[in-house]
Design a protein around this nucleic acid. Structure first.
Lengths: 125, 125
DNA sequence: AGACTAACTTGCATTTTGCAAGTCACTAAC
DNA sequence: GTTAGTGACTTGCAAAATGCAAGTTAGTCT
């Protein structure tokens, strides 16, 4: 499943996936190692739970993350990045670098984030 | 003038500037050399004119673009990138690279875009 | 039985977006 | 010298997305 594309421009098309206030924040959070719904819901940015549920559903539908049950009774899930999702890392790094250069008083990115490569963030297929 | 920040995370903060469907599309368009309102309004993605006017106003308020009159009677404007706006180039390149790798049938990015550096896109200060 | 937790869903108000049309200041054509 | 056109917007209104609080379901813990 794919979004509706406004054009075939690769920049605009990527924004048809990520062009909203929350999708990349959720991806950043999973990349940072939070895998359970409640852990993701607890981010400092205070995402509304209906928005989080919607973004997780869309990210899974688009193939950027996958969801696996980690227990039964009751069934609970763990989210993780696919290769397609981990490949968003350079976008996140570029965003963070821009903020570091142009927005005062931001948190310093950890080395694992700055120097990381997509392959480091998804389990070997 | 700055947006309201949801947190001090550099990724989330960049998205407080760019996290919507249109801001980066407008920036891409100006970077590609379209400088007048009507030229920007004519992009294939069909941006609504109220949204375009709003994004230009915000981008100027945030210091990413500047607006200079290029004629009087009637007064008309030319938009161009500031250093802060041109520094968004790596974000656009990362988005385009992601699409090239993961979305079928996108347009191929021109070499000036793929190999460009921010300094190439704003008039020497 | 009663309290708690994880993972969501529902309802409703506010905000943002999309779409069409209108405005204002000129310029050029008939 | 009315009519048509262009550039840069603004306005009005419907539709979609977001924010906030509360509710639900299926369990576990004491």
């Amino acid at each position: 499943m794919l979004p509706e594309f406004r054009s075939q421009c690769p920049v605009a098309s990527a924004l048809d996936f990520f062009g909203d206030r929350w999708t990349l924040v959720v991806l950043r959070t999973i990349l940072a190692g939070r895998r359970r719904y409640s852990e993701i819901a607890a981010i400092p940015e205070k995402i509304a739970t209906n928005v989080l549920a919607d973004r997780l559903e869309r990210l899974e539908a688009y193939g950027l993350i996958s969801k696996a049950p980690y227990q039964t009774n009751p069934r609970r899930y763990r989210y993780s990045l696919t290769a397609k999702g981990a490949d968003v890392l350079p976008v996140l790094q570029a965003l963070a670098a821009w903020s570091a250069a142009h927005v005062p008083d931001r948190w310093t990115s950890p080395a694992w984030f700055v120097d990381g490569r997509p392959r480091d963030f998804y389990p070997a297929a």
